[in-house]
Design a protein around this nucleic acid. Structure first.
Lengths: 212, 212
DNA sequence: ATTTCCGTTGAGTAGGTACTCATTGACTGC
DNA sequence: GCAGTCAATGAGTACCTACTCAACGGAAAT
């Protein structure tokens, strides 16, 4: 590869890294091209030699990050075979990339077009897996009859909502860590309430709602 | 009241009405002072004679609307005495002001300061009532033992998440109407699974998740 | 009738945004 | 060695934003 090509690729990567870093901490909607270029240490105009519009840069970075993160996420949950463990593994992974997921959840309602489709598609793929696992638990383990897809949609709606409110609920701490006990406990309660005789493995957590 | 005072009050009201109308349809974050003034039919500069900054106008309009809407909402749910009916009444009222609630849910994660506090305070007041009603049901009706606050937080998290995704999930239709059967069904399932012998009053609804 | 008052006006300001393009100069191919 | 190439530059453009202020003119006070 020629010196020129190496340099060009390097600059492109600097821009992508800068955009990624800024986006994850402050959100995709809030960052400007001038800021991205400055953080990358290149001239403002250079950005537009690599990405024709701001939107294309944002889509490139979000798309790439989404692919990486949701592939890993899917592998993490596919390794588990019952609902409780799948949920636990899911939450642990989310917590490890919490800033990214929080930004996505916060801004998704404001996206449209390609970005929204891409994210919703990833979400529904993950949810399908949970429904499958939960249905399996219901069928095989004599758990409470419940509509698997309804329960999964509820739980994920709640998780997404907590993630979107991360800064208000947990500041710089992990909001997932804060709500995980509550989610595990409610999973215990909802899915096999009869068999445990009122004794659940997960203790009742504090209310996670707090206003900062 | 003098002619001048009447005129001034009228102009102020025109601005508030215009801001309210635009905000509910497009969101508080998306509207500009120029647009508000134009819709109200007054000069751009006039706006700043009534409200020193854009933020103060937004706070005034949101605050006022929030007071009216959440007072009504509280009265609606306070009239019911069991969880199922309270939830049903809640959803019906939300549906009647769905655009407003959708904007709030969509933008809340992006607010801070006073606005966020005000909205979260209202939310928690409503949730407290639900927890009270649910705890009462659990204590008196021999329902499944479950942590009332955990269940309520889950359900409200899910509802808020669905509301924030209104446009993607239901376009101009009511997203609450779409998810209400699912929520009622899950309430039936989660709260008294043993007593009904597997026969629930609410039929299983279609998956509400659809990508537009 | 005249002066003072004050709500309204809209051009103007300062600062932001995404995006452009002539110029530069280091690298490439001959 | 030299002409041609092209990534990088940064001042410049057009447009948006919230906000200001001198001027206006009808109402109020005298």
């Amino acid at each position: 590869m020629s010196k020129r090509m190496i340099q060009k690729k390097r600059t492109r990567q600097l821009l992508l890294d800068s955009a990624k870093k800024l986006s994850v901490s402050r959100g995709f909607l809030a960052i400007s091209t001038a800021e991205i270029a400055k953080t990358a240490g290149v001239a403002h105009g250079t950005l537009f030699a690599h990405f024709p519009t701001r939107d294309e840069l944002i889509i490139a970075i979000l798309d790439n990050e989404l692919d990486i993160v949701s592939d890993r996420l899917y592998r993490v949950i596919a390794a588990e075979s019952d609902f409780r463990n799948t949920l636990s593994a899911y939450l642990d992974y989310i917590a490890s990339e919490e800033d990214f997921f929080a930004v996505i959840c916060r801004e998704l309602p404001l996206y449209d077009g390609i970005l929204r489709r891409k994210i919703l598609f990833r979400q529904s793929t993950i949810q399908e897996r949970f429904i499958e696992v939960l249905q399996n638990d219901i069928d095989n383990n004599g758990w409470t009859a419940c509509t698997a897809s309804a329960v999964v949609q509820m739980i994920f709606g709640a998780i997404n909502n907590w993630l979107s409110m991360k800064t208000a609920l947990a500041g710089n701490d992990s909001v997932v860590a804060k709500i995980k006990p509550l989610l595990m406990r409610i999973t215990d309660e909802l899915l096999h309430p009869a068999s445990c005789g009122g004794v659940y493995p997960t203790p009742v957590p504090e209310m996670p709602i707090a206003i900062f």
